[in-house]
Design a protein around this nucleic acid. Sequence first.
DNA 1: GCTTGACCTTCCAGCTACTGGAACCCGTAG
DNA 2: CTACGGGTTCCAGTAGCTGGAAGGTCAAGC
Lengths: 132, 132
Amino acid sequence: MNIGIASDRSGLPPKTIRYYEDIGLVRPDRTDNGYRDYSVADIHELRFLQRARSLGFSVDECRQLLSLYQDRNRESADVKAIAEAKLAEIDRKIAELASLRRLLSHLVEHCQGDDRPDCPIIDELAGERMAR
Amino acid sequence: MNIGIASDRSGLPPKTIRYYEDIGLVRPDRTDNGYRDYSVADIHELRFLQRARSLGFSVDECRQLLSLYQDRNRESADVKAIAEAKLAEIDRKIAELASLRRLLSHLVEHCQGDDRPDCPIIDELAGERMAR
DNA sequence: GCTTGACCTTCCAGCTACTGGAACCCGTAG
DNA sequence: CTACGGGTTCCAGTAGCTGGAAGGTCAAGC
């Protein structure tokens, strides 16, 4: 299968698929004319990568997950550990964004948003505490 | 003031301060020996940038906010618009992470995490729907 | 046989926002 | 005089692609 088909079936752009090959994730055969030739197993791996990436795993985590995927003797505990670490990371990010959100929405609420220059958002950024 | 002092007072690493100069955000004077020489106003701008960045504004948004900060005739509506756009973006990110979290925690809950190879997380990534 | 167009190839550059490191200069204290 | 803690520039690297240029391949249509 050519890369275009692999792209259609995996949901990854051709550029990304070539990139994944560059960094050693998926290594397809080559036909005589030099075109990449994807097997059904390759497509499965590409789909696997697509799903793992969209679940927020880094490329390096995907590399680990992929090798666990290929390992018939893997221990599910290994997979679970990676997923749990990622879960904790997601929680951290959500908490950070939520606190950001609180701060920013507080500022926005107190800004008139009119044609005058007075602006509590700028004041806060400038370091002048908001009068409440 | 030398860059080290500017760094202490703004909370930004020297490297970052030089970078901000490279991209045209803060332009300090130079002393005879070629050292950067920061005025009190420069420090205020650096602090402003530090706060805006930590609130999640991109460098480009910071550039806009900074020029509004410097503009005595700004309209607070302009600032509010930028802040509201950022707020909407934060909301989008939170929603995305929350949905990711749901999916991933569902998978983690169903994984035994033992020494056997069966793993619903891998199965899901491989595209086999979870039996529930 | 020739052209057109859609495909494929490689390689180089750019994106965000820094960060690390090398090689070198400046100023002061011992 | 030398050491040391500043400062300077410039180059390269990080993550994960993405865009674009220059060129090879293949099937269809005339």
